[in-house]
Amino acid sequence: KLLSSIEQACDICRLKKLKCSKEKPKCAKCLKNNWECRYSPKTKRSPLTRAHLTEVESRLERLE
């Protein structure tokens, strides 16, 4: 599967780190437990900047 097509777990399953069936409108866990089942939009991760990478590398060197 391509990364862009990976389905996201519902908010509660993601928060509780449960295996989500990803069914809509309610996944199996939410249906069974009568929880409100919501699927928040995916958040875009910002790409690493060179400055951040350099900072992490220098912190790693100090720890070694």
Rank of each mutant, 00 (worst) to 15 (best):
Arg59Lys: 10
Lys32Arg: 14
Lys16Ile: 02
Thr49Glu: 00
Leu60Arg: 00
Arg14Asn: 01
Pro25Asp: 08
Glu55Cys: 14
Glu23Asp: 13
Asp11Pro: 02
Arg38Leu: 15
Arg14Ser: 04
Lys24Gly: 13
Pro25Phe: 03
Leu2Asp: 14
Tyr39Gly: 03
Ile12Phe: 15
Leu15Gln: 08
Ser40Trp: 03
Leu60Asn: 09
Glu64Cys: 10
Cys13Tyr: 06
Arg59Trp: 01
Lys44Gln: 15
Arg62Val: 14
Ala9Ser: 05
Lys16Trp: 03
Pro47Gly: 07
Ala9His: 06
Ser5Gln: 08
Ser46Trp: 02
Lys44Tyr: 10
Cys10Tyr: 05
Leu15Cys: 12
Ser58Trp: 13
Leu31Ile: 12
Thr54Lys: 07
Ile12Trp: 14
Leu15Lys: 09
Leu3Met: 11
Trp35Ser: 14
Lys29Tyr: 06
Gln8Tyr: 09
Leu63Lys: 02
Tyr39Pro: 01
Glu64Thr: 14
Ala9Cys: 02
Glu7His: 04
His52Gly: 00
Tyr39Asp: 00
Asn33Ser: 15
Lys17Ser: 04
Arg50Ile: 03
Ala51Gly: 08
Ile12Ser: 09
Trp35Pro: 03
Asn34Tyr: 13
Pro41His: 07
Leu2Ile: 11
Cys20Ala: 03
Pro25Thr: 07
Thr49Lys: 02
Leu3Ser: 08
Lys29Ser: 07
Ala9Ile: 07
Ile6Trp: 12
Leu31Thr: 10
Asp11Trp: 02
Cys10Ala: 04
Ile12Gly: 13
Pro25Val: 03
Leu63Val: 08
Lys32Asp: 07
Cys37Gln: 07
Ser4Gln: 10
Ser40His: 04
Lys42Phe: 11
Leu60Thr: 06
Lys44Asp: 05
Pro41Leu: 05
Thr43Ala: 14
Ser4Pro: 10
Leu53Tyr: 04
Arg38Tyr: 15
Lys24Ser: 15
Leu48Tyr: 07
Thr43Phe: 09
Glu36Lys: 12
Lys24His: 14
Lys44Ser: 09
Ile6Val: 09
Val56Lys: 00
Leu18Tyr: 10
Lys32Ala: 11
Lys16Arg: 08
Glu55Ser: 14
Ser21Gly: 10
Pro41Arg: 05
Asn34Phe: 11
Ser4Met: 14
Leu18Ser: 09
Ala9Trp: 01
Ile6Gly: 09
Cys10Lys: 05
Gln8Ser: 12
Lys44His: 10
Pro25Ser: 07
Ile12Pro: 12
Lys19Gln: 06
Ala9Val: 08
Ser21Cys: 03
Val56Ala: 00
Thr54Glu: 13
Arg59Gly: 05
Gln8Asp: 05
Glu61Asp: 13
Cys20Leu: 05
Ala28Glu: 11
Leu63Thr: 02
Thr54Phe: 07
Arg14Leu: 05
Tyr39His: 06
Asn33Pro: 01
Lys26Trp: 12
Glu55Val: 11
Ser58Lys: 10
Lys16Thr: 00
Glu36Phe: 12
Thr49Ile: 05
Leu15Pro: 02
Lys29Trp: 02
Trp35Val: 14
Asp11Leu: 04
Val56Thr: 10
Thr49Met: 06
Cys10Val: 02
Cys30Met: 05
His52Leu: 04
Asn34Met: 13
Asp11Glu: 04
Cys37Val: 02
Leu53Asp: 00
His52Lys: 06
Tyr39Cys: 01
His52Ser: 05
Cys10Asn: 06
Cys37Trp: 02
Leu63Asn: 03
Ala51His: 10
Asn33Asp: 09
Cys20Phe: 06
Ala28Trp: 15
Leu53Val: 11
Lys29Ile: 05
Lys32Pro: 04
Arg14Lys: 09
Lys26Cys: 12
Leu63Pro: 00
Cys27Met: 01
Lys24Cys: 10
Ala9Met: 00
Ala51Leu: 12
Leu18Asn: 14
Arg50Asn: 01
Ser46Gly: 01
Leu48Cys: 05
Ala51Arg: 11
Val56Tyr: 08
Lys1Pro: 15
Lys42Pro: 15
Thr43Lys: 06
